[in-house]
Write a protein that binds this DNA or RNA. Sequence first.
DNA 1: ATCCTACATTGGACAATGTCTAAGTCAAGA
DNA 2: TCTTGACTTAGACATTGTCCAATGTAGGAT
Lengths: 138, 138
Amino acid sequence: MSDLLERLRGRGWRLTAQRRVVAEVLDGDHVHYTADEVHARASERLPEISRATVYNTLGELVSLGEVLEVSTDGRAKRYDPNAHHDHQHLVCSRCGTIRDVHLQGDPLSALPEPERYGFQVSEVTVTYRGLCPNCSTA
Amino acid sequence: MSDLLERLRGRGWRLTAQRRVVAEVLDGDHVHYTADEVHARASERLPEISRATVYNTLGELVSLGEVLEVSTDGRAKRYDPNAHHDHQHLVCSRCGTIRDVHLQGDPLSALPEPERYGFQVSEVTVTYRGLCPNCSTA
DNA sequence: ATCCTACATTGGACAATGTCTAAGTCAAGA
DNA sequence: TCTTGACTTAGACATTGTCCAATGTAGGAT
C-alpha cells in the first residue's frame, strides 16, 4: 500500500497533510481500526486534525475502493486496508478482535438461483464468530 | 411463534402488556424491523409504551434465543423473529430490504482449519448484497 | 516566485441509535 | 387481598456519524 498515495494523486486527489496521515495510519499495523481510533492515531502525528476530516477521508478511501468498511457488530464501523485481497473475517465474540481469513470456494455458489428472488447479487460477506485463543482460556 | 408467550412464561417471564405487544409486533408480518420501528408499531396498540421497554424486551428476546439480531449496515440493528429456522440474509444495497435465504451446504466447512487461528468458531453469518428487482429497474 | 481559486479542513451544532437511572407501577405468588 | 421484587417510565446521557459556514491551502496558471 506504499504506493497508495501515488494512486490517489493519479486520480486527482489533492494531497494534504491530513490525508497523508490518515493513509499512513491505515498502512501501519494491519488491524481494523474504528474511525475514532484512526483519529486518535492520526492526532499523534498531526494534533490539529479534526474528526470530520478523518470521517471524510475514510469515506473517500472506501469510495475509491482502497479500503473496506466492516461492520461486525452494531457498533462503530471498522476500516480494513486489505481491500485488494479477497477475504472474509473471523471475529472474537468476547474481545472483538478481527482476523482476515481466506475461504475455500466461492460463497456466491451456495445461494441457489431460486433463493435469489430476482436480485442482482453482487457481493457476499461471510463473518465467522467464536472465542479467540486468548478469551477461550480466560 | 404463537406459543412464544407460553414458552417465555415457562422460563419465568413476568407477562406484561408491554412484552405481549412487542412479541405480537414481531409475530406479525415476517419482516425485519428496527427497534424504533417495533416501538412505533407497538405504540399503535399501547400508546404509552416507552422506548426503553422496547429496547429491553428486544434484548431479552435475543438473549433467550427467540429472536435474532441482524446488523447489515452500520445503521440500526434489525430484529428477525425467524430464529428457529437456520437461514441467512439477502439485502438490497439501495433500499435496504432484507429477505431470508437458505444456503446449500454449511458455510462453516468453507473455513479450513489453518484459517481458524485457534478460535472456537461457533457461528457464521453470510450476507448477500445486490439490487432487488424493484431497485434494479428504477 | 507569486497569485488564484476550487477544493479541503475545521469546530461545533445536530442527528440517529442505544444505554442508564431513579422513581413509580404492577403481576403473580402467599 | 397484600406484598414484593421485577417491570416500566421519562428523560438524561453516551456513542457514532453527518452537516455547515467560515477559514485555509495545494497546485496549476501567470
